[in-house]
């Protein structure tokens, strides 16, 4: 997975595997208040998704695309359309 920082935004892209959880956690702690753009995220391990849940921040993506398309995770945090 690639983690990129933009003003007020953390951009996640590629395939997020379990070992990406530690750098993601560090980025979330270091950048409080940033929203998270998951448009480019193709697949995510539960270790990543649960951090996104715990962060409780707005997630930005296009509906029906990216890492959640195979999982109708309706109970997950609201995703705002980009």
């Amino acid at each position: 997975m690639n983690i990129a920082l933009a003003p007020d935004m953390i951009l996640l892209s590629g395939i997020a595997s379990v070992e990406d959880a530690e750098p993601l956690l560090a980025a979330l702690i270091d950048q409080p208040g940033c929203a998270i753009d998951v448009t480019g995220l193709d697949r995510a391990h539960l270790a990543i998704v649960q951090l996104l849940c715990a962060a409780g921040r707005p997630l930005v993506s296009k509906p029906g695309e990216g890492f959640l398309r195979d999982l109708p995770a309706i109970g997950l945090i609201q995703i705002s359309p980009r």
């Binding site: 649960q50 715990a54 999982l71 109708p72 995770a73 309706i74 109970g75 997950l76």
Partner: peptide
Amino acid sequence: LLALAILP
């Protein structure tokens, strides 16, 4: 699968 919830 119809719906999934990820809960703490």
